[in-house]
Design a protein around this nucleic acid. Structure first.
Length: 243
DNA sequence: ACCTAAATAT
DNA sequence: TATATTTAGG
């Protein structure tokens, strides 16, 4: 337990590096890699694009935004990502827009999340009153919600905690990931305690990188999760029958 | 502009 | 039944 720490740089020297290392290339790399990683919904069609509002309000057709997108199916995987996002920012601060951003699932709308959040809150309420062993108002229709464990702090009004923004202790690199390498071969995802870091090979010693933005952080987390779960096909919005 | 709960629609 | 949309209010 102790020998590992000696090989790793100290937090003090690593974390300041993050700002200069992370921002431009990594964000880009994520966007490149993630194109085949999401957006493969129903039988391979791309999702209907939500085009930014055109200044063009008359002119015959403006179907871009009026286009009906397929009804979202909340798979257990998708719901789990929802729960993770909510847990990450704390249930107190969880609002649709933020949750949506943290989930970083292409095609997912704020309305999708708002609707789901509304239902989820009702589910939490009806769990409060059920307490432990028996009784419980959780019905047969709650399979989806029951598929992901509810973090303990969701239930009790105790304080506002946003799950993690602490400096984790260091553990062996890449030991927890089956595919430590992604992006362009030089960057690895490293899970340490509850936080995810990027690691990059510099000279001999690995350099740990703390993702700067919350958004990027969540993308790292989501990607690593996808790898961990051994899914070849990762989290789609509109699953086909093989789901 | 965004959030929320409730009602209603598909 | 599950999700979306609307409504009314903050």
């Amino acid at each position: 337990m102790r020998d590992e720490e000696e090989e790793l740089p100290s937090p003090e020297e690593l974390i300041p590096l993050s700002q200069s290392l992370i921002t431009p290339h990594l964000a880009l790399a994520f966007d490149l890699r993630s194109t085949h990683h999401r957006n493969i919904g129903n039988s391979g069609h791309p999702l209907p694009q939500t085009t930014p509002p055109q200044a063009n309000s008359s002119a015959g057709d403006e179907p871009a935004r009026t286009l009906k997108r397929p009804r979202l199916v909340w798979t257990p995987q998708l719901h789990k990502r929802f729960v993770d996002a909510v847990a990450h920012i704390g249930i107190k601060n969880a609002v649709p827009k933020t949750i949506m951003q943290l989930m970083s699932v292409e095609g997912l709308t704020r309305e999708n999340v708002a609707s789901h959040l509304q239902k989820y809150r009702l589910y939490l309420k009806r769990m409060q009153s059920g307490g432990g062993e028996r009784g419980g108002n959780v019905g047969e229709s709650d399979h989806l919600f029951a598929s992901s464990p509810v973090p303990a702090h969701f239930l009790h009004p105790t304080g506002r905690q946003s799950s993690d923004h602490f400096i984790p202790s260091f553990v062996p690199m890449a030991a927890t990931l089956p595919h430590p390498q992604f992006l362009h071969g030089r960057i690895s995802a490293v899970k340490m305690d509850q936080s995810l870091f990027l690691a990059r090979q510099s000279q001999h010693q690995p350099v740990l990188i703390r993702p700067s933005s919350l958004h990027l952080q969540s993308r790292v987390a989501n990607y690593a999760e996808d790898l961990e779960s051994g899914a070849k096909r990762v989290l789609t919005l509109f699953p086909t029958r093989q789901d």
